[in-house]
Design a binder for these strands. Structure first.
Lengths: 135, 135
DNA sequence: GGAGAATAGTTCGCCAGCGAATGTTTCGTC
DNA sequence: GACGAAACATTCGCTGGCGAACTATTCTCC
């Protein structure tokens, strides 16, 4: 049911528009914010977000232009670059988190808690199996 | 869990590559093939596929170039255009259907039939609720 | 019955992402 | 220690899709 997925995506995007952010920007910030260090390399992010390296460079470009993120050339290994969340980026991320959590909650509210748990479990099993099946 | 969705999408695309087709092409053909008349207007298709009118025009262009589809200007209402599946398009669609069904089956095989039914039901309820919530 | 609103499709300029090729830096091995 | 292989990020050209403006046709209603 990818129609559902599209709807969900659209609903989430609509929610994010409230804080003036696009979905892909939020996803990237979210990955960064979920790390203790508040930073990661482009490759790591690209892997987690299932994005090509080229695409990742582009995303970081726009985020950096918006001052939500900073590029820091690594000293030990000068091929590497660390992408760090700025204060502004962190603020915007938390704002978006709230809006988004609200939207998500409203959507799954049609299912009672037990059902939500069942759904969650089934989806997780599918995900792990599919992931292992394709490396 | 949009990660799951992305994986599923990727897996399906990989499957379709076997018959040399892209996902969006298949989706469009599928909508056409699911109709008795084997044809539909661009607007109808755009609505079903959640695509902008502009995007739909582009898709039809490429499909028409590949001779999978034909544009037929309507006689009664000359603003309208009917998109009709060609024989070649229909053949390719059925070939893709088989490949795709196989891939889909393999993915949900980790769940036993009862679980599949539960998952299906939950997802459908989510979809209808989300759809009604946003017109 | 003619003017303006509505409808259907297309064109145009733009954007995010992809794959392939490129430039640097580091690693492995002889 | 030097040279080729590998790792990282970036640039380049291309593609699918979007929104807004445009064209052509039909509907509405005074």
């Amino acid at each position: 049911m990818q129609l559902l997925v599209k709807h969900v995506r659209l609903a989430k995007e609509a929610a994010l528009a409230e804080v003036g952010m696009q979905d892909f920007e939020f996803e990237t910030l979210h990955r960064l914010a979920s790390r203790d260090s508040r930073q990661a390399t482009p490759s790591e992010l690209a892997g987690e977000l299932m994005l090509s390296p080229a695409g990742m460079t582009g995303r970081i470009d726009t985020l950096e232009k918006a001052r939500l993120v900073r590029r820091i050339r690594s000293e030990e290994d000068r091929r590497r670059v660390d992408v760090a969340l700025t204060d502004k980026g962190h603020e915007l991320w938390s704002a978006a988190m709230q809006v988004r959590a609200r939207a998500e909650k409203a959507m799954v509210a049609v299912l009672d808690p037990d059902e939500q748990e069942v759904l969650d479990g089934l989806l997780k099993r599918l995900l792990t199996s599919v992931e292992s099946a394709r490396g």
